[in-house]
Amino acid sequence: MVDYALTSGWFWPLVDILCTGVIVCRLFSMMRASTAIRILIVLPLLMAGSLLARLFGLVSISWLLNGFFGSLILLMVVVFQHDIRRALLSLGRPRPEAREEAGEHLEGESGEILDQLALAAVSLSERRNGALIVIEREMSLAQFMEVGTDVDAKVTSEIISSIFLPYSPIHDGAVIIQKGKLTKAGCFLPLTQNPDVAKELGTRHRAAIGLSEVADALVIVVSEETGAISVVSSGRITSNLDELQLKKLLRRSVESRWLQ
């Protein structure tokens, strides 16, 4: 039976297809699901189109598609540079659940910073003051800090709350926390271009999602309209968090080395 399987013409191609499928699935699962699904539908169709064009001697289509496949890798790197960068950064990093299972809980100064952030978010939420708080993780956020205002202060709920008071001159942008310090305020973040984002989400939420698509930062958003607290990471949004849930989520998602 084993001999037959090994010598039959279909065994090794089947192994080849299965292995490629698993690799492709692993690679594409690091990207945004909707993007990955779109690529995985379009590429096989283009391959089938190229084969049919060659089979039936459609010279122009065949030339176009051959040119496309020739530069496919370069095209994918250019078009999906943010997804690829995020995917590569996530390689080897334990998942939040794994960190939680491993029992990594932030205590001491790092834990205090996260508690202050949670406290600020809850206080802003109660007063219906919109807020955008960014925590830098592995990737530098320097490119988004050029237009911000230098703050360089210890992270306390009072400072954050006062920055987002409606009459504060820097309440419109985002505050950025780097290495456990509040370094910038009034920063402008890139808006997401993802068409799948819910229509009811406003500019603040779109900015949070946009940043998390191009960087590995964690963003806390407080809605001005509803007061709802959300956390955005890797293009995914977790909404309607209470204080306890927010603290738990922050402890799961932020490592102490990013706060020191």
Partner: peptide, 20 residues
């Protein structure tokens, strides 16, 4: 459903790539 679809499409892509 999204994960299952991704797995199915990955296998379809792999089969198409092999044929190509």
């Amino acid at each position: 459903g999204e994960k299952t679809l991704l797995r199915l499409l990955s296998m379809l892509f792999a089969a198409m790539l092999w044929l190509f």
